[in-house]
Design a protein around this nucleic acid. Structure first.
Lengths: 233, 233
DNA sequence: CGTGGCTTTGAGGTAGCTCAAAACTCGTGG
DNA sequence: CCACGAGTTTTGAGCTACCTCAAAGCCACG
């Protein structure tokens, strides 16, 4: 399960668009702190390696982060395309870290959140990078919250897929209106506060209405204009 | 409407618990950047003073921040007790700033988010403080999202009031189980993704069940244990 | 003492839920 | 190469939590 390699600076810098928030110096530090790459198969939890606040870098594959409620309900905070960094805010604030599970086979690396938090105090470059990353993440979260609070199921599904599309396009623009999305309807439900059944029906309706078509692991946008109109509310 | 005074460093340091995230040096900078105190009456929007991304300090009174949807729906992001700082993430990420409106008469001060963002780049102390503040805020937001996604109306109302209580206690512990809450049911609805009518019925039921009692501008907790059980899910 | 916002209550509608079961997909082992 | 099993998607049927509309009472403030 463990691969021998440790990710290099160059590798890290080439990851998701989050790296743009950090200076080279800060990325070098992250490269130093991060552990070896390891593989996790589909539908498995990323191991925390004993850290209170693990931070994960996803090199390949898709994951999602979530919290379990004591009674079995589950809140999926976000899905994570390849290249993302996960758990930074929890690490820096000493809050409960979310669990991270996989949607596909994943190759990831881990670093200890406690160490990252220490760097936040000791390295100016790190502090600056973190503040930029966290500010950007917060803005996205608030978008998502607005969708949860005020959108219908149909709109939530549309808005989620549009946000995902735009996130992926930011990293690697294709302009093609088709994007990877190996996200099960169960996970979408737990992210959007809906039952699986209703996610299914909403997707069906989006397809019938000629707005988008979700297949097993990708999505085709059929009418970008209408989609955008839906997602804005 | 404008009072002449400019808030002093001492004043700022005595504000909400957010100041704990910042060093004295950073607080001094904030003190320098912040404009004069001004008053806004109940049910009014805080003026942005022409800034793209205004950041507000609330000295006295309560406010709430929100986004309007084009069709009239409204998403209230959070309510703000006296002493809070509002709009930091939007300023640092150049995203759309929320509007801020008042629940009571408010005395506030404003600073230009663009200037704050510049300081984030030029001052190490500021960057560090911001990264800590933003990390803590993000953790709270994720809690709130979980409530939106997975709680019933009854639980959402309970969880919101409990969170508010704990926030207020953190700043000024009383241990009394009674706390200020001049939040209208309309605003609670727009925060929790519920209709006013249903907020009203949920509050009624919480009172009937002997859990808590909301009055015009405060809340009395009747059964803290039961409340906590409800809020956790 | 009238007016606007807030709260409260009733009545009826509907979006989204639960339960249940069938069809499909895909990785695994024989 | 097939059969099996676990997870996922899809569909149907019935239920309920929450919504909308409407109206009345209440309170604060000018």
């Amino acid at each position: 399960m463990y691969t021998a390699d440790r990710p290099s600076l160059g590798w890290i810098a080439g990851q998701g668009s989050w790296t743009a928030h950090f200076s080279d110096t800060a990325l070098e530090q992250i490269a130093e702190l991060v552990g070896p790459l390891f593989d996790v198969s589909t539908r498995n939890i990323l191991p925390d390696g004993g850290a209170q606040n693990p931070v994960f870098l996803i090199a390949e594959g898709w994951g999602y982060s979530y919290y379990d409620f004591p009674d079995g309900r589950r809140h999926v905070v976000d899905v994570h395309p390849p290249g993302e960094i996960i758990g930074v805010a929890a690490a820096c604030s000493r809050h409960n870290a979310p669990r991270v599970s996989t949607l596909t086979q994943v190759t990831a690396a881990r670093l200890d959140g406690a160490v990252l938090r220490k760097r936040q105090d000791t390295s100016d470059d790190m502090a600056r990078g973190l503040s930029r990353l966290l500010a950007a993440q917060q803005a996205d979260l608030i978008d998502q919250m607005g969708s949860l609070a005020r959108h219908t199921a149909y709109e939530r599904v549309a808005a989620f897929l549009l946000r995902l599309y735009e996130r992926l396009e930011k990293g690697a623009p294709t302009g093609r209106g088709v994007f990877a999305c190996p996200v099960s309807q169960q996970v979408m439900g737990d992210l959007l506060g809906l039952s699986v059944v209703h996610v299914n029906r909403s997707l069906r309706r989006l397809a019938e209405d000629g707005i988008l078509h979700k297949r097993a692991s990708d999505v085709e946008i059929l009418d970008a204009r209408a989609l955008r109109r839906l997602a804005v509310g």
